Amino acid sequence: MMLVYGLITGILFGFLLQRSHVIRYDVQLGALLLKDMTIMKFMLSHIVTAMIGVYVLYDFQLVELSLKPTILGGVVIGGLIFGVGWALLGYCPGTSLGALGEGRLDAVWGIAGMLVGAGLYAEAYPYLSKTVLTWGNYGKITIPQVLGVSHWVVIFCMTVFVVLLFRWFEKKGL
Results as ranks from 00 to 15, higher is better:
K172A: 05
V54W: 10
L29H: 10
T95N: 03
Y25C: 00
S96F: 03
Y125P: 09
M43W: 13
S45R: 07
F169K: 06
I39W: 11
S129D: 15
Q18H: 07
K41D: 08
I23T: 15
P126V: 13
H151T: 05
F161K: 01
P144F: 14
G79F: 02
I23H: 15
V27A: 02
L72D: 03
E170D: 15
Y91H: 12
A87K: 10
Y25L: 06
K172S: 05
G139D: 05
V132L: 15
T9D: 09
L89N: 10
T9M: 13
E123A: 14
I141F: 09
V48M: 08
V76Y: 04
V56D: 13
L67P: 01
L88Q: 03
S45V: 04
I143P: 03
E64P: 02
L133D: 08
T142E: 15
P144G: 04
G139H: 04
E123H: 11
L16S: 08
A99D: 03
I141V: 15
V154N: 09
H46S: 07
S150R: 14
Y55I: 06
P126Q: 12
G117K: 05
L62A: 11
H21I: 02
T49Q: 01
M43R: 09
K130P: 00
A122W: 14
L97Y: 05
Y138S: 09
G139C: 05
N137L: 09
D106S: 12
T142W: 12
V75C: 04
L57Q: 07
V63L: 01
R24N: 15
L33N: 14
L7K: 02
W152I: 04
W152K: 07
Y127D: 14
L115Q: 04
S129M: 09
G136L: 09
F15G: 04
G85W: 01
A99I: 11
L165Y: 11
M2Y: 05
C92D: 05
E123K: 13
M51C: 08
L33F: 02
A31W: 11
V154C: 12
E102I: 08
Y121W: 12
I52H: 07
M2V: 07
E123N: 10
T70R: 10
Y55M: 11
V132T: 15
G110N: 04
T70S: 11
G148I: 14
G136Y: 07
R19T: 07
L12R: 09
G10C: 07
D59M: 05
S20H: 03
L97I: 13
L164R: 05
K68M: 10
G6R: 06
T49R: 02
C157K: 07
N137R: 11
G103S: 12
G103M: 08
D106M: 11
V116Y: 13
W109S: 11
V48W: 11
M51Q: 08
Y25T: 08
K172I: 06
S150C: 04
I111V: 14
D59E: 15
G53I: 12
T134W: 03
T70D: 06
